[in-house]
Amino acid sequence: MAKVIDIEADIPLHTVQLDALVVSKIIKHAREAPSTTAHGLLLGLDLDGTLEISNSFPLPHQHGDEAEKGSKTIARHQASMLRSLKEVQADDSVVGFYQATTLGAFFNQTLLDTQAIHQDKLRHGGIVIVHDLSQTAKGNASFRAFRLTAAFFDAYKRSNFSTASLISHRLTFSSIFEEVPLKIRTNPLLSSFLGKVAEPAAAQSTGESALEPTYSVLDLGTAGLTRNMEQIVEAVEAYRTEEGNLSYLSRQIAREKSKADAYVAKRKEENAVRVAQGLAPLPEEDVARLFKIPAEPSRLESLLLLGQIDAYAKSLEGTASTSLLKMYGARAGSGAETSD
């Protein structure tokens, strides 16, 4: 029974199990949403280290200028949806949220903020499921589960992303999130139903299966490549701007610091002279009050941008390698002479 009753959430999560219903709901919402930032809440329960996600619902799309009003509407939407789901015996405990993304780049500030709030509030800290739209369109439905690493969360709570803090927490973009293994599950009722639908109706000569085979995976086209490259260039551009800002700020800090140091040194010298002349030394004033040394800039933004660049490049690499594979496959299939 110790396995089943886990009030204090002591058993750490090792897998996330996603129900077929949630899979289809996320795919539908992600495709229909007006922007690529479709997100919603995941509902479920954890049992013996496995987080079973059994339901989900989308949250309304938020417009940029009414963020303040929007968050209240969303909270109300969420509360009333949860109440309604409870009435029809569906799971009603929030265990995380999902986020749609394109080309694998899901690093952004909003995602981090939401997850950080969840990590504080939810049992087991909650998880975020990232659904990659472009991958799914290419024929490989992709779902991945993440949560923030302890080191990043610690730095986030102190809201300190200075260089020193990054070093002491050993943070790079790859250590912001840790991936949790994810499994997809269909319940037996659904399995039998899907099996029935997908099975070829061989008995009747005219009947065909409700699901005809598709070969979109084998498409040789490289339509998405240009966009992917553009995204990389954009991300690199943004990163360069950010780095420029950072180095400007750090130069400013250095300048102010050296000014302050010079002032302190000068005052000490004067005092030494005055002591030698037998006069009372001047008081050492508070340097910090005289010189405003700016705080060290946060490196979080540049960290996230690097993460995005990496993700875009990774998906580009994946596309390139599969298209290589397909090209050779097509050549073998077309029976072209291999003279070289």
Partner: peptide, 10 residues
């Protein structure tokens, strides 16, 4: 575009 999801489920 949702085809792969259905394939995944079946």
């Amino acid at each position: 575009a949702e085809r792969s999801g259905v394939d995944l489920l079946t």
